[in-house]
Amino acid sequence: MANKVLVFLEQRNGSIKKSSLEAVKVGKDFADKLSCDVEAFVIGAEISDLEKVGSYGVSKVTHLKNSELAMYSSTAYLKLAIKHVQDSGADILLFPNTSLGKDLAPRVAAKLDCGIAMDCIAFNFGDDIIATRPVYAGKALIDVKVNSTVKIFTLRPNVFNAGEPSGDSANVEINEISDPDLSTKVVEIKKSEGKLDVAEADIIVSGGRGLKGAENFNLIEELAEALGAAVGASRAVVDAGWRPHGEQVGQTGKTVTPTLYVAIGISGAIQHLAGMRSSKYIVAINKDKDAPIFSIADYGIAGDAFEVVPKLIEEIKKLKAE
């Protein structure tokens, strides 16, 4: 059913991102199920520890290398990806569904004139490969089949487990690239102020209008720091200007799937749930015991955030100090 699975690895600052290791692991599963080969490729300048990708299930990684490719260029990355896909003979392509993967993968589909299923969260292998993906902001799931010869899937980060590294190393082939097409290119990355971004954090502490004012978000920040978490926010507090838009979780903000999501003073409007409902564990602290957030929370405290959160910070700190 397939010749070869090819996994696109995303690097940032020369390191391979966690979501790409997850994609490697999925690629390995595909190859096992379909009895075919799996390889990976990456585009960038200097990249550290590339052979370590072998630990997650590929034996060969190709590095398309040029000093001008450290940051994303949609024009250059696309041309290189297309050429590499064609040279490799791969007919199943996997990309992480990150901001870069979402930008690049559909263009690859356009150029190869093949079908693409975005943001997949599960696969089933029978006569066909059936991909499951959320639609309507997670209010429903669809199962889809890609009917073209070449098939592209992008994988939602944090859903597939990369597993423990096996210690195997991959054979790294470096292809020096000359004259990449930089007609569209990133010239600068402006980091947001927060230390950790909600889109990539394993734990998120989010605050809502129940916090009453921007000045009270120190409670959220302190709890986040104690937990090693990123700070998130509801749209209500972003619209009020209490928090930056980059922290907004939900339909018009970011979709997150952390292991732990703590919602404090957030009612749980459907558009907020859309962004965080697939978090593994959800904790809600809200003084209204009928707030909709409790319907999806694993653990809740129906109390006043100003009384509960300081105690929670204290207990977490105590635990971490042990």
Binding site: A117, A140, D143, V146, N147
Partner: peptide, 19 residues
Amino acid sequence: MIELVAMKRPPAKQPGKIL
């Protein structure tokens, strides 16, 4: 090129505990 095979509800989350 994409064929929708089925649409389904997401698995229901067990309502949690208010502690």
